[in-house]
Design a protein around this nucleic acid. Sequence first.
DNA 1: TGGGTTACGTGATGTAGGTCACATTCTTTT
DNA 2: AAAAGAATGTGACCTACATCACGTAACCCA
Lengths: 202, 202
Amino acid sequence: MSLCSFEPFSEKMNSKEILQNHISKTISLTDEEFEYFFSHFKVQSFKKGQTVISAGDKVNCEYFVISGCLKAFFINDEIKMYILQFAMPTWWTSDYDALYNKTIATINVDCITDVEVLCLSNEDREKLCKEFHQIEHFFRWRTNKGYIASQKRLLSFMNNNTKKRYEELLALYPQLYNLVPKHLIAAYLGVSRETLSRLYNS
Amino acid sequence: MSLCSFEPFSEKMNSKEILQNHISKTISLTDEEFEYFFSHFKVQSFKKGQTVISAGDKVNCEYFVISGCLKAFFINDEIKMYILQFAMPTWWTSDYDALYNKTIATINVDCITDVEVLCLSNEDREKLCKEFHQIEHFFRWRTNKGYIASQKRLLSFMNNNTKKRYEELLALYPQLYNLVPKHLIAAYLGVSRETLSRLYNS
DNA sequence: TGGGTTACGTGATGTAGGTCACATTCTTTT
DNA sequence: AAAAGAATGTGACCTACATCACGTAACCCA
């Protein structure tokens, strides 16, 4: 699991410390405030292969990854899969469209490895944002970063060919190479597994 | 210019009313608070073809569009152009990566038509967010919406062929068809102008 | 420990879209 | 009103990638 970790020593930290360490990079809360914040999260464990969000279901929570790796993906015509995000430790994942707009999920989230997450409901996030200006600030910045990353990926999609996008992905997240099967990397890049296979045998 | 407008009667409103109408959809400010908020914006006018942000420059502001239409785009190898966003009345635009991370611009913004914008500096936005919890809330929601839209476009890119993406774009923004030249629509879709041309002649 | 599922490699062939080249029309400038 | 410059249409040809098909290797798990 330590393969997925972006923040040092996380395997020595418990989930509370991992979250505290994560948010302290953006805002400062007193220990008391953080305790209150943390009390709204629920620890959940999943086994490899288990489903966290199914397309068609109602979505109530977002998930902060403590350990393991998940994928958020879309299934086209019940056939092809496209991966929107690999979620690694200290990343957040959900179907944010469904979550914020209170519609049913159009994307799925499931577990590539055994996973531990902290789960925060939509209502609790909004409540916390209302109660603590700092927490609203934190979530604004988190989304900002996600937005910027998403724009960059879009650009890379238009501008780069598959080979370049593959190299870019591995440069950014070298741990993916050993952690997730190649056909999932293909699904992230938006190409067939055959094309990806031919790519790195040359 | 009324072609670009998504909010009714905007041509009868002045820039202050347009902004007030826009933010009142997410938060409620007193008239006094709004006056203070508005006092941080600077009106700017541009002629068709003028540059607002150049790749390589420092980026200090984000722009709220009052009238007209801009494009935010990336130039690859000094040759190919990819459009990240068409910015229409009541939309926000900038190079957010450069703006938030205080780096130089990698994307350009220029004017497809004559344009009027309200300009807000990064420092003033952060100051206002700090001073008014409500304003921080507004900007969190604005970015949320942008993030969700960006994810959807990414999915559409992977999942749909050019024809479908073209129809999707026109269904969402019918006014684009008459407002912007076809080769810019091609640059938004990420295909060559020739391909797009052949597409709707069939 | 063996049988079934999942992951991966590779050939043959089809196709969407890119690139280049040139013609036509529409728009802007002087 | 003429000239120059954009924007668009269209043919010929090329390339990256998809799809189908089949084979092999690795990994569960009963």
